[in-house]
Simulated scan of single mutants.
Amino acid sequence: MPEPHLRAADADRVAVAAQLGEQMSAGRLTVAEYDERLARAYAARTYGELETLTADLPRPAPQPAPAPFGAVHGVPACGWSGGPSRAAAWRNWAVTAVIVLAVWVATVIGSGELQYPWPVWVIGPWGAVLLAQTIGRGRRDDDRRRLT
């Protein structure tokens, strides 16, 4: 914590309250001790007052920073890394297309009359974007081959 004489913010009080809750859940504090320390945490004005509430408790382990979206399994956050992720994108599109077309066909059969083909608004734009990305990716690969 920063210097003990500096004033604490609401976020600091909430962080200490969360730590006290974790310590009570772990069995290090009784409910009465937790209630008393929690009241003091929300009344605390300085970092020093907050520090005394957790001084006799083990420090929580630092939490690792969350991985950026798409960084799992080496897939970049934007674009494709090639191969499997492109195939997976097309596979997801195809499965969705089959499902929405099956729903549409079932409603046509159930009603006995031809209905508006709404599945085109689900699978059409998505397929167009995938196609554009696939074609664009192929061109970038060709340009890289020519440069090397």
Rank of each mutant, 00 (worst) to 15 (best):
9 A>M: 08
11 A>K: 11
22 E>T: 09
50 L>E: 07
39 A>F: 02
89 A>I: 10
19 Q>V: 07
10 D>A: 10
56 D>I: 02
133 Q>F: 14
17 A>W: 00
141 D>N: 12
19 Q>N: 02
110 G>M: 05
120 V>A: 08
113 E>W: 10
13 R>I: 05
15 A>W: 04
54 T>W: 05
136 G>T: 05
56 D>N: 12
78 C>V: 13
96 T>D: 10
20 L>E: 03
97 A>H: 01
137 R>P: 00
112 G>K: 08
134 T>Y: 07
33 E>H: 03
135 I>Q: 05
62 P>G: 07
85 S>K: 13
14 V>A: 05
125 P>M: 09
78 C>Q: 13
85 S>C: 06
124 G>Y: 02
82 G>D: 06
64 P>C: 07
8 A>W: 02
9 A>T: 13
136 G>K: 05
108 V>A: 02
55 A>Y: 08
80 W>H: 12
53 L>H: 04
36 E>C: 06
49 E>P: 02
92 N>M: 11
8 A>G: 01
132 A>N: 03
134 T>Q: 08
58 P>V: 13
74 G>I: 13
48 G>D: 04
34 Y>L: 14
132 A>M: 12
47 Y>Q: 12
77 A>S: 15
54 T>L: 12
2 P>I: 12
131 L>Q: 08
102 A>H: 04
12 D>G: 04
57 L>S: 10
7 R>W: 00
113 E>H: 14
108 V>T: 09
26 A>K: 04
92 N>V: 08
52 T>A: 15
14 V>L: 13
135 I>Y: 04
119 P>N: 09
120 V>L: 15
51 E>H: 14
86 R>G: 06
67 A>F: 02
115 Q>N: 14
77 A>K: 06
33 E>P: 01
35 D>M: 08
108 V>Y: 04
115 Q>E: 11
128 A>S: 09
138 G>M: 13
99 I>G: 02
27 G>H: 04
76 P>W: 01
107 T>I: 03
120 V>I: 15
45 R>L: 12
66 P>W: 03
64 P>R: 14
37 R>I: 07
63 Q>T: 15
75 V>P: 00
5 H>T: 07
115 Q>H: 14
57 L>M: 09
50 L>A: 03
105 V>C: 04
45 R>D: 11
11 A>L: 03
47 Y>N: 11
39 A>P: 00
37 R>M: 08
121 W>D: 07
133 Q>K: 11
72 V>L: 15
114 L>C: 00
48 G>K: 08
70 G>P: 00
118 W>N: 04
68 P>N: 01
59 R>P: 09
104 W>K: 05
37 R>W: 01
52 T>Q: 13
75 V>Y: 10
47 Y>M: 15
